[in-house]
Amino acid sequence: MLNYQDQDSLLKLLSTQLHQDVTCYAFGGNAMMFYGYKDETKDVDILFETLDERDEFIRILKFLGYSEISAIKIYVPEKLKDKHAPIMFKRDESRFDLFVKKIFQTNLSPKMKEDVFAIHEYKEKHTLTIKVLRKEQLVILKAVTDRVNDFEDIKTIVAKDQYFDWEYLTDEVLWQAAHGDGWVLLDVEETMQQLKKYVFIEQKWFEKLYNAR
């Protein structure tokens, strides 16, 4: 498990080893720690825009003693057939899930790029820039990755945030569906149905998704 201080130290350490600037997007437990939603995590989910940047990141992870593991027991098998499935690295109790360009079929949308919650730059000789996605995006991506504990994380985000923007979430889901994501509508609708047991969600947001099908 990584806590906030561990994550900070690890990212600083990673940045000292960089041979080029690397920019990436955080959306897993690590993103939730940046927000303050949780204190520790074992999954660090990162999305890169280019293969080059991911390769550079992998080089450093290997240097720090992380080794590649199989994703079979962690993700739903049918999702792992997708060409945008992650490469995973593990050391002790911490695990990195590294995606490029897409999270399975979900794109790095213009809104994801523009509306980030935070930007953390780790500056050494080169800079590691971590862009933390908005909470609505975190919920969508956690619904898509659908691993053990992902639903618990979604519940935490939605329950603890009185300003959760369902309109923003549904707009983004529709954009993703219109741009080739065949799973997002089903995944998010299923998650919202489960969430209804814990938080109030207006029916109109469900209908907005149904009308898009």
Binding site: K12, I119, H120, E121, Y122
Partner: peptide, 10 residues
């Protein structure tokens, strides 16, 4: 409109 933090010389 977003939280910008720089860990290092800034």
């Amino acid at each position: 409109w977003y939280d910008h933090q720089v860990h290092g010389t800034y």
